[in-house]
């Protein structure tokens, strides 16, 4: 086929539609099987039921896993957003020696295979003699969440007009006062967006949690354990559906805040956003 024709508008639109359908294929199946009456996860569908959601309410092990995951995700999102704010601010606003190297080290967990992060933290903890707990999972999650936070917040800081700070300082505000009264309100949407995204990442992270979790398992580790038992699968689907709805809700919220941040600073909200 001729490249020119392939890259014409109609062909590409058709391609994009097919691509999106494949992208959404697994996601669409999740609720389908969560409400399917059969215990076997396969076609044909047999009927509609709420049974699997009911099972979730009666499983105590699940409740403690949810609780552990929520605690981990909340603490992770706060810590990584704090560290991310500092990193992003330094990256955008200041020039200093070794900047590239320092920034690269902070950002590298973004592309490191998670198994490497998990294994290396586990080896260190074993050597120091720290036993595994939700705190060890948090330590690993913060490490992989900080780069996301830095990426989101550096776009928030980039849109900040330096003359606003100068004006505030000239008018007699202290450095801290300027941060609290001028910078903070302007980057607040970015901070909220970072909190939401890092929360979502932590909630769903499996590999690091798998290596670093102690007896208090996280939700994905619990799900992994359930996958070995075919009879548990429908309720896992129901659980996945709830998680899906929750994640989409949080992400839409994060996106709304990000756009508000961009428009507050007069930027084009259609940019790639926090992800790049």
């Amino acid at each position: 086929m001729n490249i020119g024709r392939f890259f014409s508008r109609n062909w590409l639109t058709g391609y994009a539609v097919v691509y999106m359908l494949v992208l959404y294929l697994p996601v669409v199946l999740l609720p389908l099987f969560a409400f399917n009456a059969s215990t076997i996860i396969a076609f044909p569908l047999t009927g509609f039921t709420f049974e699997w959601f009911g099972v979730l309410f009666e499983t105590n092990a699940l409740h403690s896993a949810v609780q552990n995951s929520l605690v981990i995700a909340v603490i992770t999102s706060i810590l990584s957003t704090l560290l991310g704010t500092l990193g992003a601010r330094a990256m955008v606003r200041y020039r200093f020696p070794l900047k590239r190297g320092i920034v690269s080290l902070i950002m590298v967990p973004l592309i490191l295979p998670e198994i490497i992060v998990g294994v290396s933290l586990l080896v260190l903890l074993m050597q120091i003699g720290i036993s595994l707990s939700i705190w060890t999972v948090i330590a690993g999650h913060v490490l992989i969440c900080v780069p996301f936070s830095v990426a989101i917040l550096s776009s928030a800081f980039q849109g900040l007009d330096p003359s606003l700070e100068e004006a505030s300082m000239d008018l007699g505000e202290t450095r801290f006062g300027t941060f609290r009264r001028v910078i903070m309100p302007l980057i607040l949407p970015g901070i909220i967006s970072s909190l939401l995204i890092t929360f979502t990442i932590s909630l769903d992270e499996f590999i690091i949690a798998f290596f670093l979790t102690g007896t208090d398992v996280t939700l994905p580790v619990y799900i992994w354990g359930q996958m070995r038992f075919p009879t548990k699968l429908p309720s896992v689907m129901a659980l996945g559906t709830i998680l899906l709805v929750l994640s989409v809700f949080l992400l839409v919220l994060g996106e709304v805040f990000r756009r508000r941040s961009a428009s507050r600073q007069g930027q084009d909200a259609s940019a790639t956003g926090g992800l790049m």
């Binding site: 704090l82 560290l83 991310g84 500092l86 990193g87 601010r89 330094a90 990256m91 606003r93 200041y94 020039r95 200093f96 020696p97 900047k99 320092i102 920034v103 080290l105 902070i106 590298v108 967990p109 992060v117 290396s120 933290l121 330590a139 690993g140 913060v142 490490l143 900080v146 830095v150």
Partner: peptide
């Protein structure tokens, strides 16, 4: 700049 970036940097040194 270095003061600001040191907490995330130290974290990365310690944990990575």
């Amino acid at each position: 700049g270095l003061t600001l970036i040191s907490p995330p940097f130290l974290y990365a040194i310690l944990m990575l």
